[in-house]
Amino acid sequence: LSSQEYVHELRSGISEDKLLNCLESLRVSLTSNPVSWVNNFGHEGLGLLLDVLERLLDKKQQENIDKKNQHKLIQCLKAFMNNKYGLQRILGDERSLLLLARAIDPKQTNMMTEIVKILSAVCIIGEENILDKILAAMTIAAERNNKERFAPIVEGLENHEAQQLQVACMQLINALVTSPDDLDFRIHLRNEFLRCGLKKILPELKETEELDIQLKVFNENKEEDSIEL
């Protein structure tokens, strides 16, 4: 399919299995085609992808197919932003971060792993006030479910049956907590995570070998900050 044919399909309001097939084909095209193709698709395609994701997230009763489509959409967004052009377009659309944060669901471990990795990557590219945008998106998303903004991340970190999710969540914690230049803000974010449940589970996390690198980063930065303090 050409990029315009995908745009037409997405605009036609297809859903369920037809949408899933279209999105899987789009994911492959976004991954394998040159950036110019992604560029062409992106003009209208990004907005349409976000529209579909928003529609799925707004559905009161989410069927299994809806969750599959959400996951496929996240994979399309990741493929789309895997180049400088797509990344700039995603960061340029304020809905992107909010919809990514809203799609975080500790019960859907594979999708949450991918979302959290995307947010961590976006957080460390050094784009101006990106940290504030991510925190704002997480706050708004959490408030919709009457939760603290970091609660889903700590919940993901506790899931011993999903080690990839645990690693991704610890990466996001490190990405967020090391972002501020201001020492007080770094300490504030770290303490917020600790209060939100991280303090209680840190001792048991040491048992998980896959987390060694991220826990080392977390402790080193905590140490550096207390010395600076």
Partner: peptide, 26 residues
């Protein structure tokens, strides 16, 4: 240079290895 793909992949590798966090503010 704008046509370079793999931007997210390399960011994610830097996160995975911990390299992303070394001297983040220097």
């Amino acid at each position: 240079e704008g046509d370079e793909t793999g931007v997210m992949d390399s960011l994610m590798e830097a996160l995975q290895s911990g390299a992303a966090f070394r001297d983040r503010r220097k």
